[in-house]
Design a protein around this nucleic acid. Sequence first.
DNA 1: ATCTAAACGAGACGGTACGTCAGGTCTTGGT
DNA 2: ACCAAGACCTGACGTACCGTCTCGTTTAGAT
Lengths: 214, 214, 214, 214
Amino acid sequence: MSGASATFRCVEPASRRGRPRSEDARQAIVAAALDLLTRTGYGAVTIEGVAAAAGVGKQTIYRWWSSRSALMLEVLREVARLNIRDRDRGSLEGDLEGFLSDTFALARRIPAIPALLRGLMAEAQLDPTFLATLRRELIEPRRAALAAVLARAEARGELRAGQDKDLLLDLAFGFLWYRLLVGHAPLAPRAARALAHALCLAAGSSQARRRPDR
Amino acid sequence: MSGASATFRCVEPASRRGRPRSEDARQAIVAAALDLLTRTGYGAVTIEGVAAAAGVGKQTIYRWWSSRSALMLEVLREVARLNIRDRDRGSLEGDLEGFLSDTFALARRIPAIPALLRGLMAEAQLDPTFLATLRRELIEPRRAALAAVLARAEARGELRAGQDKDLLLDLAFGFLWYRLLVGHAPLAPRAARALAHALCLAAGSSQARRRPDR
Amino acid sequence: MSGASATFRCVEPASRRGRPRSEDARQAIVAAALDLLTRTGYGAVTIEGVAAAAGVGKQTIYRWWSSRSALMLEVLREVARLNIRDRDRGSLEGDLEGFLSDTFALARRIPAIPALLRGLMAEAQLDPTFLATLRRELIEPRRAALAAVLARAEARGELRAGQDKDLLLDLAFGFLWYRLLVGHAPLAPRAARALAHALCLAAGSSQARRRPDR
Amino acid sequence: MSGASATFRCVEPASRRGRPRSEDARQAIVAAALDLLTRTGYGAVTIEGVAAAAGVGKQTIYRWWSSRSALMLEVLREVARLNIRDRDRGSLEGDLEGFLSDTFALARRIPAIPALLRGLMAEAQLDPTFLATLRRELIEPRRAALAAVLARAEARGELRAGQDKDLLLDLAFGFLWYRLLVGHAPLAPRAARALAHALCLAAGSSQARRRPDR
DNA sequence: ATCTAAACGAGACGGTACGTCAGGTCTTGGT
DNA sequence: ACCAAGACCTGACGTACCGTCTCGTTTAGAT
C-alpha cells in the first residue's frame, strides 16, 4: 500500500523456463480470499477454503505464498493499490490532516481494508517471522510517508528544535491502529482533524490553528 | 489487570453440592499456561499442551474457561495482580508520567505481560466475541484509570476548555499498544516522560514544563 | 484367519482409564472397509474413504491401525472368522483334499476373501514391514495348519522317509496363491482334488489313490 | 523377459516427421528407474523421482509409457534381456531342472529381477488392467516355455496318460512366485532340483530318479 | 535455406490422499 | 460432583505425486 508497491515488485528474469505462472489462477486466488474475508471474517479464511472457492489446487497457493498471512498481505496490496497522494498543503497541520483523512477515508471506503489490517496485525503477533515482514512491507513504508510530511514541516520551521519525530509518528499511527484494533470509535473525518491538531500542538508548531468550534 | 479483578470475580452460590473445585488444578493450569507462554510464545500455547503440562484433563480447563483467550486473560490477571497505584503528584504532567512509567515498568519487569497483551489483542481480532470481553475486562478499566487522571487535571484547570479527553486517551494508549504490537521501539522510561509531555502539550496544559534537555 | 485369531487378540489390562474404545466405531470402520472393498476394489480403498463411509474421524482409524494394510488384515480376520476345521479323514490324500477344498470353498463363498488376500499380498510387496506382519499373522498360521496334516501323515507312515515337508507346503500354497494372484484359473473343487493327488504323488505316498477318471 | 521381447516391439511407421524420439532419454529413464528401484525399493519409485533422476521432463515418460507399471515392465525386459535357452537334456527331470535352475539363477544373479517381479505382481493386483498386460507379456510367455518342456516329455512318453499339464505349470510357477513374494526361503539351486523332482513324481514320470541322499 | 512438426527440459496446473494436529465434546473409573 | 485420562468427530494443516497442460528450445524430414 502507499507508493511503496514498486519496491516489492517481484523481479522476474527476462526469460523463465517451464510453464509460466497462470495470472488467472493468481487473480482467482486473491479474489476468492478477498471474498471470503468480507463474507466470513479474517479468522475464518483458510487456505483450503480459498483454494476451493478459487477453483484451484492448494499447492498452487503454497507455491506462491508461504502462508495465509503472506497471501492476505498481497490481497491488501491489491485492494489498496491506489497510492495515497501526499500533496503539499503549505502547512504542517494541513499536510497532516490531508494524510490522515485520506488514510481514514480509504479505510472507510473499502471495508476490507480495516479487516485486513486487523487480521494481519493479529497474525504478526502470533508469528514473529511475519511481524518482520509486516514491518518491512507495511509499517515502515507508511512511517516513511508520514516522516516526509514532518520533514517538510521542519524545513518550513514549523517544528520545535530537537522535536522527536518518531514520537509523533508513534502518536499518529498508534492512534490509528488503536482505534482500528479496539473498535471503540470510528476513523471519522472529524477524528482526522482532531488528531492532526493534537499532533501539531505536541510538535509545538507555532502555526497551530485555533481549534475550530467543531 | 489493575484493580478491576474484583469486578469480574465469578459469583459462586453460597453453597454448592458435589466435589468442590480443585484450587490445585486451577493453579497448575495457570502456571502451566504461563510457563508455556514464556517458553514457546503465545501462538504455540494450546489447550492440549496446557492440560498435559499441568497434569490435568482437558475438560477441567474447558469447565472453567471457555477458550484459550479466556484462560490467558486470567493468566494476565494473575501475573499483573498488583494494582498500579495512581498517586496524585499535583500536576497533569506528573500524574501522566507516573501512570505511564508505572505501566511501562510493569511490562518491562514481567516479560510475560507484553507477550500476553499482544496475544490477547491478536485473538481479539480473530474472534469478535473475545474482543468485546477484552474491552470490558482490560481496555475499559485502563481507560477509566487514565480518565481519572485527566478528570483531576480538569478540576485543577490544567485542561483547555472543551478538550476532548477521549482523544488524549487514544493518543496515550495508542502509543502504548502500537509500540507493544510493532516492537520497533521499547517501552523505556524516557518514552514515558516524552509521551507525558507530548500529551500535556496536546491537552494545551498551561503548566507544561519546559522540555528537559534529556 | 483359521484358528489363529486367539493368538493375536489384544490383551487389555484389566482396567484402563479414560474413555474406552468405542466398539461401534470399530465395527463401522471394518464394515465400511469391507463394503468399499467389494464395491470399488482393494486399490480404491482409502483411509479417507473408509472414515467418511463409516462416519468416523480419520484419527480414530489411525489410532487403532497403523496403515491401510493393517486395517485390511483385520477386515480379513473379521470376514474369515470361522475356523477351518481340520478333521482327520484317515489318509493323507483325504486330509489334504479336505484342507484344500475347505480353503477353496471359503474363498469362493466369500468373494471379499480373494480380493483381500490379493490386496494384502500386493501391499506386502511394497512395504517390507507389512510383509513381516503378513507372514506372522497369515502365512505362518496357515503353513502350520497344513504342516499338522503332513505330520499326521508322517505318523501314519504315508510319507517317504526324509521327505522335505516345506517343499510340499510351498507347492500347495504356491498353487493357491498363484491362481489367486494371476487369476487364470479358478479355485474350483476339482482343482483341490487334483492338487491333493499331485501332492500325494510328490510326497511318495504309497496310498495315493488311482487318479479318478474325472 | 524370455525371448518374447520381439513380439512387443513398437511398430514405427517407416518415416515420421518431427524430432525423432531420443534414445538417450529412453535409456536415461530406464537406467534411473532401475537405479531407484535397487536403492529405494519398488514402492518408492515415482514418476517424478525417475524424471528428476534421469534429468528428463515428466511428459517424456508419459509420452512413452502409460504408467509406472508399464515403465517397470520395460525395465524388467531390459534387465532380463538374455533369453533363457531351453536345451533338450533328454529327460523330463533334466529339462525341468535346467529350466528351473536357470530361472532361479537369473533371479539370484540380478537382484533387481526379484524386486521387479514382486513389484509388478503387486501392481497387477491393484490395477486389473495391468494384470491383463502382465499375464500377456510375462506370465503366458513363461508358461508357454515350460509347456514346451512338458510337451517334449509327453512325446517321449514320460507323462502319465491324461496328465493335466496346467496343474504342473501351476505347481511349478506357484512354487516360484510364492517363494518370491513371501521370501521365507531362497530360490537356491537345491530348491530347483527338489522342485523338478517333485514335479516328475507328480507327473507320474516313470524315469523319476531316485532322490539323491542330499 | 526455410518450414513444419514432433520431442525435449522444465515446471505450473487442478486434484486426491496422505498422516498430523488441535479443537471442543463425550464417557469411563477413581476420589 | 469433580477429576485425570483418553477416545470421539471435525476440520484444517502442509506435503507428495498424480496425470495434464503450457512454455521456449531442439532436431529432424519435407519443401
